[in-house]
Amino acid sequence: MSKFIRVRAGLLRETHPGERRVALTPDDVGRLSERISFRFERGCGVGAGHSDDAYIAAGAEPVDFAEIASSSDLFVSVRQPIATRAFPATSVLLFLGWKTAPIAIPPTGQQPLHLDIARLSGLPGLKGADISSGQAAITGHAAVLEAARQFGISHPMLMVDGSFVRPVKMAALGSDPASLQALATARRLGAVTFGFDLGNDSQARIERLGAKFLGTSPEQELGRLRRELSGPLSKVQLITTNVMNPDRTAPVLLDEEMLSQLSPGTVIVDLASESGGNCALTRADQTTDIFGIRIIGSTTLASQEAAEASRHFSDGLRNLLEHLIDAHGALRLDGGDSVTAALLDEGSPARHASS
């Protein structure tokens, strides 16, 4: 195959309201330029601090969406493109979604092939493949900083006249990368931290971060959480939640009765808001004020650190593209390859694509 036959890739501008990240930085576009011919949607990197001129200097061509859609084989983005955006039926879309959500493999010739990068989470042997965990950690860090801002504090261990102000109490419900990073960030800021999760295997991860573990057994945990929030944790001031069930809406951990028992001024950041939320009153992309507490349902917290989040996302995506696209510039989706099998969800039939 000729070395000059290269995948024609389209770098998309994000369409989710408030999303400022970009899937590839100009530096990584330049590194991939020998294998891939890039077109980019104008303004795609502005929110993350990358100008159109920087992408042009890296060898990419600026175009509008209509042109990028008609002239590309592979489309990359941070989030799954909105349904109103039409792509060629033979193309491939690569984005970060939810590994627990089913992705239907459409019949050949009807719709583009959707590949969810989140399905690579925990896959060994591919450098930088676990993009979702990195983005989750950034989200957890941003959640604590946002909660502290909403709570009206700049540092939980502020010293006044030689004495420390009483430290803030913070609880993280969940032991995923976002929740663990939230605990670590709060701990670094001097907060007294507590961790809760629906499983015994999370205790070691939570306690390694210096937090007190609240979970017991799956049958007792919700009752234990209710008792803790009405007793020892009744004065908790910052809470992050991120507990989800595969292929289902997120479980409600904080019902209205439990929320009403929290101290006025408490701030909750519900990181499961896109899946329905762990709080009974969470609304995605909204902030709810009730019982004197504030529930933040933002789905774009990683965008508060868009430049760093994009750098990490781009680094992982570059490694993934270097794995999927050979030295001749051809995209090979081989179901026998563990990475491709994971992207296709347990080895569903792959479509082979090349320019």
Rank of each mutant, 00 (worst) to 15 (best):
G190V: 08
G190L: 07
V192F: 11
V192T: 14
V192Y: 12
T193M: 06
T193F: 06
T193I: 11
F194T: 04
F196S: 12
D197T: 15
L198Q: 12
L198H: 05
N200C: 10
Q203E: 13
A204S: 13
A204R: 15
I206H: 06
R208D: 15
L209K: 09
F213N: 12
F213M: 06
L214D: 08
S217G: 10
P218D: 11
E221T: 13
L222M: 14
G223C: 09
G223V: 10
L225T: 11
R227H: 14
R227C: 11
E228F: 13
L229D: 06
L229R: 06
G231L: 09
G231S: 15
S234D: 12
K235M: 12
V236A: 13
Q237T: 07
L238D: 01
L238F: 07
L238K: 01
I239P: 03
I239M: 09
T240E: 03
T240L: 02
T240W: 00
T240R: 02
T240K: 00
M244P: 00
M244K: 07
P246A: 13
R248D: 15
A250R: 02
A250E: 02
A250L: 03
L253S: 10
L254V: 05
L254G: 03
L254F: 04
D255S: 08
D255H: 10
E256V: 12
E256H: 11
L259K: 08
S260M: 07
Q261E: 14
Q261M: 13
S263M: 14
S263W: 09
P264G: 13
G265S: 05
G265T: 04
T266M: 04
V267P: 03
I268S: 06
V269P: 00
D270A: 07
L271I: 04
S273M: 01
G277M: 02
G277D: 05
N278V: 09
L281D: 09
R283T: 12
R283Q: 14
Q286R: 14
Q286E: 15
I290T: 14
F291E: 04
G292L: 10
I295L: 04
I295E: 02
I295S: 02
I295W: 02
I295Q: 02
I296W: 00
I296C: 04
G297K: 01
G297L: 03
T299E: 01
T300C: 07
T300I: 12
A302F: 02
A302D: 00
A302Q: 03
Q304R: 06
E305H: 10
A306N: 05
A306D: 05
A306Q: 01
S310L: 06
S310T: 12
R311Y: 08
R311P: 07
F313I: 07
F313T: 03
S314P: 08
D315P: 00
L317P: 01
R318E: 14
N319M: 11
L321H: 02
